[in-house]
Design a protein around this nucleic acid. Sequence first.
RNA 1: UCCCCUGUAGCUCAAUUGGUAGAGCGGGCGGCUGUUAACCGCCAGGUUGCUGGUUCGAGUCCAGCCGGGGGAGCCA
Length: 527
Amino acid sequence: MVTFHVRSAPRAAPPLHTAAPPLRPPVRRPPPRCHNTLRSCSGIVPVAPCGAAADNPCMTKHTIHEMLTGQVPVDTSVTVEGWVRTRRDSKGGFSFIQVHDGSCFDTIQVVAPGELENYQSQVLHLTTGCAIRAVGKLVKSQGKGQTCEVQADRIELVGGVDDPDTYPVSAKRHTFEYLREVAHLRPRTNTFGAIARVRHALSMAVHRFFDEHGFVWVHTPIITASDCEGAGEMFRVSTLDAVNPPRTPEGNIDYTQDFFGKEARLTVSGQLNGECYAQALSRIYTFGPTFRAENSNTSRHLAEFWMIEPEIAFADLHDDADLAEDFLKSIFRDLLQRRGDDMKFFADRIDKDCITRLEKFIDASFERMTYTQAIEILEKAAAGGHKFEFPVRWGIDLQSEHERYLTEQHVGRPVVVTDYPKDIKAFYMRLNDDGKTVAAMDVLAPGIGEIIGGAQREERLDVLDQRLDEMGLVKDDYNWYRDLRRYGTTPHAGFGLGFERTIIYATGMANIRDVIPFPRTPGNAEF
RNA sequence: UCCCCUGUAGCUCAAUUGGUAGAGCGGGCGGCUGUUAACCGCCAGGUUGCUGGUUCGAGUCCAGCCGGGGGAGCCA
């Protein structure tokens, strides 16, 4: 069995938050040669003895993560390929280069001796952002602050920085607002590298959870011609001439000549399509981009964001709430286990409570209460002197101040609020026997408020039709959706989770524009 | 969309009541016996977001526009 050495450097994470387990077994018997026939491992430079699995011939180079976590034995010849974060010149006539390659949070220190042939001409001119390849040996560090480092025999400048004076991303602190203007370069910073890895880890955790629980990932369409999704303003998709579109005799735009023969838009939710597959495969989920053309300009809204929407058949609202609880705890547990290095950074520099918040979240059982009970609690609080900007009475939608009071002050744990008044919820939510409320639920969490919104769906055709009528919606527009209620209908439920909001919650990042690689917001679609 | 704040060197920020635009970091050059956001010295770097106005004089005051931030609404 292999032992993994966790670095004892200052940045080493506590046991719960150790780095991800190795992707593949460490080197055991170094074969004499690298049989890489797909492409050159590293051009003309000799590379490390190829210890990679035979089915992975291009992985003969080691990542910084592998070197720092003891998967590469000391005294192994190694090749580091990455980007320079800083260069420090020693009094002794040699230099230290901190290199990152994205494989983990930490950089590795490359020691460049003054005897290198290009030391004066290139090494001493390396600046932040330069791409380099360092060939040498992984050795125990003579200095403090790191256990191992790369003693370089050769350093190649793979890609230089045109004008170091104006390179937009220095090694020093930048504001997030500034980095948004250089979104093509910001992944090279500590924070955005960490965000990218956390985002990936959470994505994989989502798929892992659903896969292990028998859910099928359904790729619901991005483009939709049904105007009945009803969750917000939509972007139009068209190939018509925008300046001189074809017109009907009445003067309206003639969409029958458009690409799809009718008006088409970008989806605002995969739920209605997801229900179709849930009524055949029992447990499904969607995970993909979603588009809302709302003119919302806040730290919690994007025009393009990713949403996760599970849907389960033969299930009621309680099953839905149980699923939400198990799901959230599972992905946060996964995140802490697999990205301890990045999470430690967020705890150190962004939000000191982010790790303990997740640990508490994982350990707590979610409180359950009905909307009516929630209103009673809030009314008591108001009577007891608690000031709410928006007055509380049965029938209102809960404001974020109300949600925060419930989860942060009244319960101190995540809360699932169920059974909201039907007038403030969507047509597809199942009408309760009281005739006044629907089987909707919101999961509220301390520090963020609503993190999940879901519902048991209305499976009875007559009741669904009645709700459509009440809301002034045209039944014919929903015929395929109504068919589900005519052919083998079942009680079913689901919820929606905004992926970026989940990342915000996990990391403590303040602005949603900083947890997606290239944010799209009103007035901004750069990059 | 509404309310409030804000825009000065590559970056982060100063600039008194309207009176000669500065510092730190970054960059260049030179020092310095293993450094940790290294350190020390010197140098370069600006149409103060844009347009107009008030004034002897505007980074500073006024108007409009553009960008950024915070809050609200909408929501995920």
